[in-house]
Simulated assay, not measured.
Amino acid sequence: MHGLFERLIDAREQDLDGEAPADMPALLRYAEGSSAALTWLALESLDGETGRRPAAVEAGRRLGAAWALTGLLRAVPYHASRRQLHLPADLLSRHGVRSEDVLELRRPAGLPAVVREVAVEAASQLRAAREVAKGLPRQLLPALLPGTLAGLYLKRLERAGFDPYAAAVQDAPPGRIWRLTLSNLLGRF
């Protein structure tokens, strides 16, 4: 468990340098070090056997990555206002988006394409988490419930044309507590 706290600290140290990840694998490493480590800690607190359950470890890794990517996409305006950028540099370049334009809150035309690619990866991670979690003990479900919200936020982002500045993306969706409750009752995320 001590190693998970170190991973969290190491990942959060990257926040201090303010540099965008070079590519999607770098962004996923950050997501795993930050959010997946928290998910693993939550799983471990619910069941001390998590480390011996490969499916739980993998579900936590995938769910943590999906949740982190989703949160980073929703936080693009906030991070940009703080002169931070968590979008992969190679995607920005491929879609003709200059980092400085995002940091200056200019909303460049290629930004939705970048956000879409990261959202597709987040959705893929979420699907994989749901698949690998089948058959896990129900007592682990509370640690995986952020997947319910990740799915909801990703759908809202898609409906908004992958514009992270859209009000529908920034506003908290009504009924999210009820969705979590229903997911918990149904035993899914």
Rank of each mutant, 00 (worst) to 15 (best):
149 L>W: 12
173 P>N: 02
135 G>A: 09
115 V>Q: 04
161 G>Y: 03
112 P>G: 08
152 L>Y: 04
171 D>N: 03
148 T>V: 11
135 G>S: 06
177 I>H: 15
138 R>L: 09
140 L>G: 00
178 W>M: 14
114 V>I: 11
126 L>E: 05
160 A>H: 02
113 A>K: 15
188 R>F: 11
140 L>M: 10
164 P>M: 10
164 P>W: 03
166 A>F: 12
176 R>T: 07
118 V>R: 02
185 L>Y: 10
150 A>L: 08
124 S>N: 14
117 E>K: 00
127 R>M: 12
135 G>R: 01
137 P>E: 12
143 A>Q: 07
185 L>E: 03
115 V>P: 04
132 V>I: 12
132 V>L: 07
146 P>H: 08
165 Y>N: 05
134 K>Q: 15
164 P>A: 07
116 R>M: 11
158 E>C: 09
169 V>T: 13
184 N>M: 12
152 L>R: 02
176 R>L: 13
167 A>D: 06
117 E>V: 00
189 F>M: 12
138 R>D: 04
111 L>V: 11
165 Y>C: 10
112 P>S: 10
183 S>H: 12
159 R>S: 13
127 R>N: 06
131 E>M: 04
130 R>Y: 10
160 A>F: 01
185 L>F: 09
155 K>R: 15
135 G>L: 08
110 G>N: 07
114 V>T: 09
178 W>R: 14
119 A>G: 06
145 L>S: 10
169 V>C: 05
180 L>K: 09
162 F>I: 04
186 L>R: 15
132 V>E: 04
129 A>C: 12
130 R>E: 15
170 Q>D: 10
174 P>E: 12
125 Q>K: 08
170 Q>W: 00
133 A>P: 05
125 Q>T: 01
139 Q>T: 07
132 V>N: 05
122 A>Y: 11
110 G>C: 09
154 L>Q: 04
165 Y>W: 14
176 R>Q: 10
153 Y>G: 00
124 S>Q: 14
143 A>L: 12
141 L>M: 11
170 Q>V: 00
132 V>P: 07
181 T>H: 01
169 V>F: 02
140 L>K: 01
136 L>D: 02
152 L>V: 11
145 L>T: 11
178 W>E: 07
125 Q>Y: 04
128 A>C: 08
112 P>W: 04
177 I>P: 00
158 E>V: 01
154 L>F: 12
179 R>Q: 13
166 A>E: 06
180 L>F: 15
157 L>H: 05
121 E>F: 00
149 L>Q: 15
173 P>M: 03
169 V>R: 07
136 L>K: 10
129 A>W: 11
172 A>Y: 03
163 D>V: 12
152 L>H: 05
132 V>W: 08
134 K>E: 14
155 K>G: 05
